[in-house]
């Protein structure tokens, strides 16, 4: 089968080695953390998405869950959830004919004050200022999957300082678990 002869050659180059057994556990733990992160990605607007639910999904105690999640993804679960909700709020402010209060509730915040404060911490603008700035902007063409994963990724570049340099501690309190 010539089609995969290169792959066969690659696989027959060396003798057989085995992966140390102890490291398998790390992959399983990483998978558990990812399942919890997937819950945030899918159910970020659900008020029931809280730290206890997420920790249970990952099979961790609350304490170890927060630390392990941050070690893997660079943010605590609370920060990540807030970040998801603010990203979605940005989308809705740009594109939807809804009031700031409606958007606040749609993305899972119960207090308008907390929402506005978190929004400003992340974007540097209040929701109203953000909407005024982005009104009438053209279509975004980046495929949604990439945008979603990009938004879920680690903060780098010029935006990172603006978002991460302010109130990192604050972001982990209030609405987020």
């Amino acid at each position: 089968m010539p089609a995969f002869s290169c792959a066969v050659r690659a696989f027959s180059r060396a003798g057989s080695l085995s992966v140390p057994r102890a490291t398998i556990g790390n992959v399983d733990r990483m998978r558990q953390l990812r399942l919890a992160k997937d819950v945030i990605d899918r159910d970020w607007a659900e008020p029931g998405t809280d730290l206890d639910t997420l920790a249970a999904r990952a099979g961790y105690s609350r304490y170890h869950f927060i630390r392990a999640f941050k070690a893997a993804y660079g943010e605590t679960p609370g920060q990540y959830l807030t970040h998801r909700r603010i990203d979605r709020a940005e989308d809705l402010l740009r594109t939807a004919n809804l009031s700031v209060t409606e958007i606040c509730h749609l993305v899972g915040f119960s207090s308008l004050g907390t929402f506005s404060a978190r929004f400003k911490t992340w974007t540097g603008m209040t929701p109203s200022e953000y909407r005024a700035k982005h009104v009438g902007r053209g279509a975004a063409l980046i495929p949604g999957c990439y945008a979603m994963l990009w938004a879920g990724g680690f903060r780098t570049g010029p935006g990172a300082g603006a978002r991460d340099g302010t109130g990192a501690g604050e972001r982990n309190s209030g609405e987020a678990p």
Binding site: A7, S12, S18, V19, V27, R31
Partner: peptide
């Protein structure tokens, strides 16, 4: 292995699981 050394394989697996 044998196509990938154990360390690389372990890193790949973690990235997949992550």
């Amino acid at each position: 292995p044998p196509a990938m050394d154990p360390e690389s394989a372990e890193m790949m697996k973690k990235l997949i699981a992550k």
